[in-house]
């Protein structure tokens, strides 16, 4: 491949020449190559973080300008507010439920799709389908399903003479509804990752297990899951972090209600800053959210660090 590339004319003293040139130009190149990205990250990631931190120590006016310095009092009032604490609790319940359910269902789909059956490819394709669903589409599909008068769930329970669940207006079931919708949205991606991992498990392991006479169910827990545990952990933590950032489904399906039951952290930031106009409080909540997510990301890095060398 290299033969076709243009040759430099003077190759008489390559090692000396290049070494001198190399050191001289590398930093220059670095500015060109790294400059744009660095500038963007400084402008839209580093600076805003510091600005958010700064704003969290102030009060802000209608236009989001800082007015009075209040020290840590925004933090104190937030941490002592029962409504914020319940949001935090709800968020934890939500992310745990979503990540566990996503992984369990993802494994079920992947294991089932990893059989050699006629037409299995169709199933595999369908299992990954929710990857193509964007958040507003998912919200519309599920809003219809959970609708109290025309929704499928309401009609089913009516037909079976069961009490109709007010899916989106009862605090407990609203959370369940949001969890169901989120897990459903996550399934396609999770399925693909886990399925990929399953395919790389050597077949010989199962053959050996068959010969020893280990049942299929035992094989699942003793062979399959340990072999893909790394992937499972990866998927779990990625799902967890993404779940912390949930916004779209909540915005369209419950608007954080009822009784703040689905007012998860990001939705709260939006509501406090961009509906109530309290930018200082939004900033304070942003800092707390960042701390929480940073912790989980560090865990993820630690795990990745084991597999990815620097």
């Amino acid at each position: 491949m290299l033969q076709r590339l243009p040759k430099q004319v003077d190759n008489s003293l390559p090692s000396l020449n290049l070494a001198a040139k190399y050191k001289l130009t590398d930093s220059g190149y670095a500015i060109v190559f790294l400059g744009p990205t660095l500038m963007l990250l400084v402008a839209f990631v580093f600076y805003p973080m510091l600005k958010t931190l700064y704003m969290s120590f102030f009060l802000t006016n209608d236009f989001g300008k800082t007015t009075a310095f209040v020290g840590l009092s925004n933090y104190v009032s937030l941490i002592t507010s029962s409504s914020y604490l319940s949001s935090l609790g709800a968020t934890l319940v939500f992310v745990l439920a979503v990540s566990i359910l996503t992984v369990v269902l993802g494994v079920a789909l992947a294991v089932t799709a990893n059989q050699e059956l006629k037409g299995i490819r169709l199933f595999r394709t369908l299992f990954s389908a929710t990857m193509g669903v964007s958040v507003s589409v998912a919200a519309i599909f599920w809003l219809f399903a959970f609708n109290p008068s025309v929704g499928v769930f309401a009609q089913l329970s009516q037909a079976l003479h069961l009490p109709v669940v007010n899916w989106l207006t009862d605090p407990k079931s609203a959370m369940v509804a949001i969890i169901i919708s989120t897990v459903w949205m996550n399934l396609g991606f999770t399925f693909l990752i886990i399925f990929g991992a399953l395919q790389s498990v050597p077949k010989s392991l199962y053959e050996a297990a068959d010969i020893v006479g280990i049942s299929k169910l035992t094989q699942l827990f003793k062979v399959t899951i340990p072999m893909i545990s790394g992937t499972l952990f990866f998927v779990m933590i990625v799902t967890l972090i993404e779940a912390f950032k949930s916004f779209g489904l909540i915005d369209m399906m419950t608007e954080g209600g009822p009784d703040n039951a689905t007012n998860l952290l990001v939705y709260r930031i939006y509501q406090d800053a961009f509906i109530n106009g309290n930018f200082a409080q939004g900033s304070t909540e942003s800092i707390l959210l960042t701390i929480i997510i940073a912790i989980f990301t560090l865990i993820q890095f630690k795990f990745l660090g084991k597999r990815v060398h620097y």
């Binding site: 008068s149 007010n166 207006t169 399906m253």
Partner: peptide, 21 residues
């Protein structure tokens, strides 16, 4: 019957009312 809050609630109560429910 509780239709909740927000624009969804409004459309839902209207839909139910119009449908005679």
């Amino acid at each position: 019957i509780n239709f909740g809050s927000g624009s969804t609630a409004e459309t839902n109560e209207m839909a139910a009312f119009l449908a005679g429910k």
